[in-house]
Simulated assay, not measured.
Amino acid sequence: MNTKTVTASAAGAFELGDLPVNRIGFGAMRLTQSGAAFGNGVPSDRGRAIGVLRRAVELGVNHIDTASFYFSALRSANELINSALAPYPDDLVIVTKVGPGRDPSGEWLWAGPEQLRGQVEENLRQLGRDHLDVVNLRIPRSMASSSIAEHFGALADLRDAGMIRHLGVSNVTPAHLAEAQAIAPVVCVQNAYGIGARSEDHEFLRACGEQGIAFVPFFAIAGTGRETGASVAESEEVLAVARAHGVTAAQVRLAWTLQCGPHVLAIPGTGNPDHLAENVAAGALRLSEEEMTRLGCVQRSGR
């Protein structure tokens, strides 16, 4: 596959509410540092990070996922995005998330409902925007069986005030989604998902598609490596499919994820321009039904 000739449009498109985006997007988390787990690495080269963002847009990426808490000792993902891309292209959709944050001492915290407005305003300032396209409410594991109504209601109020255009939820259960939908429309679910996902995760993905809600997997390439990246040995099944197509294992994982439903949006992140081109090119890779089933996903219609 000639990665230099493939653009993000090869993956097709879907809508976040009324905002059309190509199904291959870009995740900004890895822009701020090199190596190690999130928050503990060496600050990235600023010029290279800005170059990657500009190249992503040149390759047709019009969906960028970010957050104000994506930063290292010297780098802020939102600041990099602002510096690289403002004034923003008309078709660029920037999705951010709130919930996690840091207190004045630098310790991580989870925002209460009354703190979410401050986090939204922080994203607005850093990105240099007067409204946010999509804001995801990120749920901590400790709230897996708790109500999110108060938190999501606070964001719905900010949506009504014009600060946010659309709302989504992240790291949630089907019960959380139903609870949120009773308060305000939900345009996307952003959960961990990829090859090796549990049967209930496959079912949740399909249920989102039936409702016309975008499903946005994170760690689609990293898998169990999560924030540290794809650091574990790759499975022979994935390697065999990669060899058959002459592509990388990461490209197989992205293609598999996209083919699990037409409503699935990928947001692979990288600070490497070569990896960026490979990730975008994965949107043109088509796996056979037999390969999809072998890797663990039965293709079904998303609507």
Rank of each mutant, 00 (worst) to 15 (best):
G271Y: 00
A67S: 15
V280E: 04
L85E: 08
S235M: 04
A240I: 01
I139Q: 08
E114I: 00
A284K: 01
L31Q: 13
A244Q: 11
L19K: 12
D65W: 07
G229P: 09
T173V: 02
G283H: 11
W256T: 01
I24F: 05
G99F: 06
A13I: 02
R54K: 15
P89Q: 03
C297L: 01
F38M: 12
F26H: 04
E58C: 02
N22S: 04
R226W: 05
G118K: 03
G41H: 10
E227I: 06
A67P: 14
P140F: 13
D91L: 02
S142I: 09
L287Q: 00
I195N: 08
V93K: 03
M163L: 15
V252A: 08
R165N: 09
A197N: 06
Q115R: 01
L85Y: 12
D65R: 14
A149S: 13
G35Y: 10
F204N: 07
S288D: 04
H275I: 07
D65Q: 03
H166P: 01
G27Y: 07
A207C: 06
A250G: 15
L16W: 02
S146P: 03
G271L: 12
E227G: 03
G229C: 13
E107G: 10
E200Q: 08
A161Q: 14
L59A: 13
T96A: 07
G196D: 11
V21A: 07
E289N: 14
R300V: 05
I221G: 08
H151P: 12
R226I: 04
L92Y: 12
I81D: 01
G302I: 05
H151A: 09
A182V: 02
S235D: 12
V21K: 12
N136F: 08
F14C: 11
R46E: 13
G261W: 04
L254F: 05
R30Y: 04
A284Y: 09
E15T: 02
S147A: 08
E179H: 01
V298P: 02
S301M: 09
G35L: 11
R102F: 15
P185F: 01
D90S: 11
F69N: 14
F26Q: 07
G302W: 07
N2K: 13
Q119T: 09
L258V: 11
N82E: 06
R294L: 14
A8D: 02
P217E: 04
Y88E: 01
F69S: 12
Q126M: 06
A255V: 11
V134L: 02
L155Q: 03
R165H: 14
D91T: 09
T270N: 02
G223M: 12
T248L: 00
L92P: 03
A180H: 05
P87A: 10
T248D: 04
A36M: 09
E200I: 11
S170T: 15
Q259C: 08
L258G: 14
P100H: 05
F38I: 05
H263N: 15
A214D: 02
T248I: 08
E121G: 02
P140D: 07
G41R: 14
G99S: 14
I148H: 04
G302Y: 02
Y70A: 12
L265F: 01
R243E: 15
V264K: 14
V232D: 05
A11S: 15
I139L: 09
A178S: 08
Q115M: 10
A282Q: 10
G106T: 09
A207S: 13
S142N: 00
